[in-house]
Amino acid sequence: MTAHTFIFQGETLLALPSGGLFWPAQRVICVSDLHLGKSDRMARRGGPLLPPYETIATLDRLAQDIAATDPATVICLGDSFDDVTAAETLADAPKDRLSTLMAGRRWVWISGNHDPGPINLGGTHLADYRHGRLVFRHIAAPPATGEVSGHYHPKARLVLRGRRLSRPCFLFDRDRLILPAYGAYTGGLFCDRPALAELMASGAEAILLGTPPIRLPMPR
């Protein structure tokens, strides 16, 4: 797999091209902001009827990562569903797909701002989750250290010899690591925007998704 290997809090981690994070020593895979059921929620609210395939597209991607890494623990870092109704009304096909993926693994649902309530899909539901030296939660909560979070959907943009390029990315500094959104229908927030630029310490780095992912000083 063409992942990028980096060290965070003394732990060796892999940034996967899909936007997932793999921790080989602990056999943990972590994905953030799946936003399953997004098209359904938009239709329900009288919005546009988008192609209803993002749930299956996202689960396909997750299945590939799980098949490649064979994790013992899967952590979904919040906003796994676009809202509570989306979780409750998940269609049978994706539900079965999810059950297959969950079978034989520890599965942790961290609650996010979109899906705070309980989910009837099995697995463990937590506001945050500590595993070894790392703590997993949805939204970064300074001054925590060793914190892995999501929520912001970070993206980086840069200009290379006059050409503009923008990709989703991981962001990390000494204390915190922020994952890109994993869901198919997700936009992003540029890391030079104040919300992210002020959150990340100076010297922070970015890993841009791609094959392979590419590591840069975080664009500001």
Binding site: Y53, G187, L189, F190
Partner: peptide
């Protein structure tokens, strides 16, 4: 205010091509 909510129509195009090519 944050741009997380909007996403590119390119994603819709790619998704349709993969999951509903006859659309």
């Amino acid at each position: 205010s944050g741009r997380q909510a909007t996403f590119s129509t390119d994603i819709l195009y790619d998704t349709l091509r993969k999951y509903d090519p006859g659309h």
